[in-house]
């Protein structure tokens, strides 16, 4: 079962997201800010992370940087950032920072699930490759 960590400070969005993912068959973890998210990543090792950008304590960019710099062994975990449609700067920065993909708010759940599936497939292939070595 694939574990997805949802980092989002807006409770309602987080709840709906978690609901959707659960129904789609993912195991879900939750965090309400970047710091909590980091804790979760380090302790629970999720397969995929979906993260908002603007959050208190530690935001999405900071979290990404933190992983890339201080925990490179975890940098392979795909990050999907939630950005605003018109927030080009954040999107570009996030992608440059190492995010695998992004989704714009309001979220299109179909698109979300499709992207997750793609991630899962790639992860499986990666593991297969690694295992063969």
């Amino acid at each position: 079962m694939v574990t997805v960590l949802c980092i989002e400070d807006e409770v309602e969005i987080r709840n709906l997201l978690v609901e959707e993912l659960s129904e789609a068959g993912y195991r879900t973890l939750e965090a309400s800010n970047g710091a909590e998210g980091l804790e979760m990543i380090l302790s629970k090792w999720p397969d995929i992370v979906i993260s908002d950008i603007s959050m208190p304590v530690m935001d999405g960019h900071q979290l990404l940087a933190e992983i890339q710099i201080n925990h490179p062994e975890l940098s392979n975990i795909p990050f999907i950032l939630l950005t605003a449609l018109t927030d080009r700067e954040n999107t570009l920065a996030g992608l440059r920072g190492g995010a695998a993909d992004y989704l714009t708010k309001p979220l299109d759940f179909d698109l979300l699930l499709a992207k997750l599936e793609g991630c899962v497939t790639r992860l499986a292939n990666d593991k297969a490759v690694h295992r063969s070595f």
Binding site: E10, E12, I13, L16, L17, E19, E20, E23, A84, K105, P106, L107, D108, F109
Partner: peptide, 19 residues
């Protein structure tokens, strides 16, 4: 954007929920 996202997500859930 946030409440709109909430509304959209809730509406999607209403449409998509299978259970």
């Amino acid at each position: 954007r946030t409440p709109l996202a909430i509304i959209d997500a809730a509406a999607q859930r209403l449409c998509r929920s299978t259970t």
